Amino acid sequence: MAERQATIASASGLHARPAKLFVQAVQEKKIPVTIAVAGGPDLNAGSILSLMGLGAAHGTVVTLKADGDGAEQALDELVALLETDLDAE
């Protein structure tokens, strides 16, 4: 299982537009991806409701995990997305 950490760069955290863009990117990967904050459970990263419930604000460090073909590359791309201020684009 591949694992990466990312720091949320969007000013609004993983809410509204950044969450929607991230969920779309996860769903395009066609492999299961989870996301968690320190001490929290692994949640489905492809679910907008899971992301909204995560409470990940700007600067929050999250852990992404994935398993399957292309998991390493998928996580690299998802980390890059989270570490981009999606509110500014």
Rank of each mutant, 00 (worst) to 15 (best):
A36P: 02
I35E: 00
I35T: 03
G39Y: 11
G40V: 11
D42I: 12
S47A: 08
A74K: 03
D85R: 09
L86K: 08
P18V: 07
S12T: 14
D67N: 10
A36L: 10
K29P: 01
R4N: 05
E72R: 09
A19D: 00
Q5A: 10
E3Y: 09
D87H: 05
L54Q: 01
H58R: 11
V37R: 14
T63W: 14
V62E: 00
S47C: 10
A19K: 00
A2M: 11
A66Q: 02
L81H: 09
D42S: 12
V79Y: 12
S47D: 06
Q27P: 04
T84G: 12
L49M: 15
L54D: 00
A19P: 00
S10F: 07
I8L: 05
V62S: 01
E83L: 13
I35Q: 01
G40Q: 11
A9H: 06
G55E: 07
Q24C: 03
L14Q: 02
A45M: 13
E89A: 10
A6N: 08
F22S: 00
Q73G: 10
G13Q: 01
A71F: 13
P32L: 05
L86A: 04
G68W: 09
V23Q: 01
L64M: 14
L21C: 06
A56S: 11
G59M: 07
S10C: 05
H15E: 03
P32V: 03
A80E: 14
G40A: 13
Q73S: 15
I35H: 01
L64V: 15
P32H: 08
L54A: 01
G68N: 09
E3C: 09
P18W: 03
L49P: 00
G55L: 09
I8T: 03
A74W: 08
T34F: 09
T60K: 09
G53R: 07
E28T: 15
E28G: 11
A2S: 14
Q5F: 09
Q73C: 02
A80L: 14
L14P: 00
